[in-house]
Structure formats: C-alpha cells, structure tokens
Design a protein around this nucleic acid. Sequence first.
DNA 1: CATTGCCTCAATAAATATGCTGATAACAAT
DNA 2: ATTGTTATCAGCATATTTATTGAGGCAATG
Lengths: 218, 218
Amino acid sequence: MIKLLICDDHAVVRSGLSMLLHGRNGIEVIGEASEGDEAIELAEKLKPDVILMDLSMPHGKDGMTATTELKKLMPEIAVLILTMHDDEEYLFRAIQIGASGYILKNAPHDELISAIQSVASGDAYLYPTATKRLMGEYLDRVRNGGDTATPYDSLSDREREILSWLAKGYSNKEVAESLFISVKTVESHRSKLMDKLGLKTRPELIKFALKKGLLDFE
Amino acid sequence: MIKLLICDDHAVVRSGLSMLLHGRNGIEVIGEASEGDEAIELAEKLKPDVILMDLSMPHGKDGMTATTELKKLMPEIAVLILTMHDDEEYLFRAIQIGASGYILKNAPHDELISAIQSVASGDAYLYPTATKRLMGEYLDRVRNGGDTATPYDSLSDREREILSWLAKGYSNKEVAESLFISVKTVESHRSKLMDKLGLKTRPELIKFALKKGLLDFE
DNA sequence: CATTGCCTCAATAAATATGCTGATAACAAT
DNA sequence: ATTGTTATCAGCATATTTATTGAGGCAATG
C-alpha cells in the first residue's frame, strides 16, 4: 500500500484527487494539506511514502520551499510535483531540490497513477515533454562544459532581491529607501544584474520576472 | 438527476471532479471538455442542465468567451464558474455575461455540490465573499447613480492601449515612438488614465495590469 | 449650436534615471 | 597571499520622467 499525502491549496482539487486515488491501485490517501507548512507537519506525523505537491500556493509556504525542507528533514519521502506550470524553470528547480517527479495537472489520470507508483518505488517520473527538456539541457551541458546554467542562477541573492523590486515597477529611489541603501547601490546592482541576464530594457526585465513568477505583490 | 458537463483544461482536475460529483446528490456527470469550443459542442449534443466552467484555459477558447456564446446559444443551461481567481473583475464580468454562479476552487466540496444544486434549480450561487462584493457594488451604484462602473471601463481605448504598453515596462518615449505620437501625448494619456484609476505609482499600475491580464507580451 | 469627451501637443521646472569610471570593505576560495 | 565575488557608495554628464497648466481640432450628443 502506498501511503500518499496530498498538498494543494484548492480544497476541491484535494477532494477530487483523494476521491480519484484513494483505495485504488494500491494507493491510500492518508492526509491532505493546503499549504507547505501543513504538509511538512503532516508528513512528520503520518510518514507518507509519497507527497503529491502543488507548486502555487499563495497562502503559506509554497511547494518549492516546502519540498526543499521536506527533502532535508525526511529524504526518504518521495515528492511528486503536480502543477499546471509547464515551465522549464520550475522543472529544473524541482529536480535540483530533490523532487522525484514532475507531472502536469492536465495529465490523464492513469498517468498520474503510474507516476505515483514510479516515485513510490524509488524511481523518477517526468512527463514526456519534461523528459525531452531534461535531455536537451543535459546535452547542452555536455556540449559546452556545463557552464550555461540559467543566467538567473548566477545572480547573487541581493541582485535577485533588487530584480524583484524593480520588476514590480518600483523606482531606483523607492527600492533604495525600502532596503535602506543608497540609490547608487541600487543602480549598481541593477546594472550588474541586467548585464548578467543580458537584459537591455525594462520590458525585457518585466517579461523575465513574469516568467520567473517574481511578480507576486502582497 | 442533474446532468452536469465539466469544462477544465486540467485532465486530473476533470477526473477528480467527475469522481467527486458523479452519482451523488442527484448529480450525473455526462461529459468533460478541456476547452471552450469543446464545451459548446458537447453542450449542444448532450444538453446538460449545468456546466461547470473553468476560466483559465490557455489552449482553445477561454471560459468567459465560451460562457458568453453558450448563453446566447442555449440560455437554458446554467453555467457555474469554478475558478481559482478570487477577483472582482472576473466576478463582475461573469455576472454580466450571464453565469448563474461563481465559486472558488478552494471551496469545500459540499459547497460545490450545493452550488450545483442551486444553479440547477434556477437559482444563483456566489461564494460568500463574492456576495459581499456584489452587495458593495450594488450599494455603490445605488448611492451615486450607477455611473461608477469599474474604473477600468471609464478608460478610453487609447488610454487602455497606453496603459498596457506602460505596464509592460515601456518608457513614455518608447510608447510614443511605437504609436507614432509625441511623448507629450503619451504623458497626457498616462496622467489621465492614472487619475481615472486612482493609481499613483508604477507598482500600482503594474499590479493593476497584472490583475487585468494585460501583461501578455509576444 | 453648445457641450462634452477624446486625442493631440507644448512650455516649464523639478526630480530621477542612465551610463560611465572608480573606490572601499568584507569574505571566501586557492 | 592573491584573487574573486559581493555589497556598499560617489561623481559627473546627459537623458528622461513627472507634474502642471493650457490649448486646438474633431466627433458625437443633446
């Protein structure tokens, strides 16, 4: 019996998944969480074999962060990312933080079941496009020594922070005041980060931030 | 028996909902569609009593458009919007195009069931916050003669166009050049539209555009 | 035909941003 | 001990933005 914990911020989705999966194909849904912290708590209590983790959870801890912490605390639990984001960035980040699988919400449900079974037995599961992307990325790295990475990764924490403020439309001055640093410093970070990312204009910056999911507000 | 048609772009969500709802509480799921056109097609063929309609469907016809057409073709079918967007704009638009109900994906599933039953029997259903908002809006209109509308509606086409360029991060000058008008004109539009929307800062503008789905690019 | 809204543009002054070059200190890595 | 990275800040010249006030042409509405 595979003990499964479901984490998704939408109650309807949780109920639906639970109904869909529980008691079939050797799967037993032992708990539901609506955000990351609850998932971690329940995982410690219930010791599931697999956690089905949504990424976007506006309230509470998001799926990426929760997965990161989970893999530190309980590396034996397999985390299967279930998301609507068909996005390279998310995919690669998920792999890097130790997720065992990545599947889209628009996958047919027998694929979801086989994904759960795969990760439960220690294997990995990626949806087909993801596999293709991973292979492409792998080939890229092999070909030119692995220094491509994502330019985003080359940013320092501070630069990422500045980036997110700027992308939201704050002026240099406003960012400076919010972070208690001088305008000059903001400008300096800005020019460096735009250099690193190869961005030349503000629209490019906003577009980039949009893809990265940096435009959250509140 | 309430004949229900489910329209959502995520197969897993569809299966889950179907599993959750079918054969209980007098509900019978007679079909599933993954986007708007399919929903319309199936609705004509299967004559459901209620359509459970997701809003965000990136591929094919979105939920708003589909609902609009459905209500023209088959006004007797009740459309219940099921979405994750807890957003005034969507809510009011949904009401205007004739949806019978609006419920969030994070609602408990017995609420979903009672929502379906409500709209199936010709009533309307809104989740509590939505009801409150609708009442507020109603009161606003009563108080000052109904001319408030949404501030966004008070924008002229040109102002909306300028807004979208600005929100994407283009500078006044760039917008001017793209639209073949003078920088002065852009500034003028900008100040007027920000006045109308009650926006004071660029972050507010971007946030607004984000909510409106104006940040598309390409 | 008077009014109103929209689109267009200008002058001006103050505030900011941009693009350089360059500097200092902390810290880690080799 | 040297090198590299990061975070911090400055000066300076030029360009751009913002806020104001004002105004002409045009089309629709009454």
